[in-house]
């Protein structure tokens, strides 16, 4: 494992911790898209089916479990916690995420590394992760004002993607048989979706003003 991959994983972990902190500290999930969170929980559940079949490292196994548990806990909290669920911006979170699900699954059936149950679900999770942030970005755009923790949550998620791209570039030059074009192309698409958000995040950071997305 190289430093970029590790930094990416830590950014990913940080984003989840920031989100948990926001929900627990403020007892509110306003500005957070339940649809995006549901998609992420599904991404991890579909991708880590290999927990039962392949062992890569203790690090990988622990991280996989952490991602599954934390993402399902967030969804559970937003749906079931008496206090938290009242702050959910349901009327703003209207992105039709079932289309993303269907499209990702259809693509996984067509484009995969091997036509097996596990590989199809792996490809599905990669495609779904690439677009899972869309309901969140749409929600932020609609609500206009973004609170600090929500802004940082999306920032860390974007940083995680950026480090994964550096990781792939590094692996491409250091490993002899590095070819994973499904993950790389999807990863590029996913990172591109953050470009707009990063621009406004940078502007607000530079001017030391509250993050505001244009309508």
């Amino acid at each position: 494992m190289n430093i970029f991959r590790f930094a990416g994983d830590m950014m990913h972990l940080t984003s989840i911790l920031v989100l948990l902190l926001k929900i627990y500290a403020t007892k509110s999930c306003s500005g957070i898209s339940l649809k995006t969170q549901e998609l992420y929980a599904l991404v991890f559940l579909a991708r880590y089916l290999d927990l039962f079949t392949d062992f890569i490292s203790v690090y990988n196994t622990i991280m996989k479990l952490v991602f599954i548990v934390s993402s399902t806990a967030i969804v559970w909290c937003m749906k079931r916690d008496r206090v938290v669920r009242r702050s959910y911006d349901k009327q703003l979170d209207t992105f039709r995420h079932y289309f993303l699900l269907a499209a990702s699954f259809a693509l996984a059936l067509l484009v995969n590394e091997k036509f097996t149950f596990q590989e199809i679900f792996w490809a599905f999770s990669i495609y779904l992760e690439a677009v899972a942030i869309l309901p969140q970005l749409v929600l932020l755009q609609r609500s206009g004002n973004v609170d600090n923790l929500t802004g940082q949550y999306v920032f860390f998620l974007g940083a995680y993607r950026a480090f994964y791209i550096l990781n792939w570039i590094y692996r491409y030059f250091t490993e002899t048989h590095f070819s994973r074009w499904i993950a790389c192309i999807s990863g590029l698409v996913q990172t591109a979706l953050y470009a707009d958000f990063f621009y406004y995040y940078y502007i607000s950071w530079k001017n030391n003003t509250k993050l505001k997305l244009p309508a």
């Binding site: 991959r5 290999d50 392949d54 890569i56 990988n60 996989k64 991602f67 590989e119 990781n167 993950a183």
Partner: peptide
Amino acid sequence: PLEQHMHDEL
């Protein structure tokens, strides 16, 4: 070495 179909990233 890892086989091609094993996914070593998260």
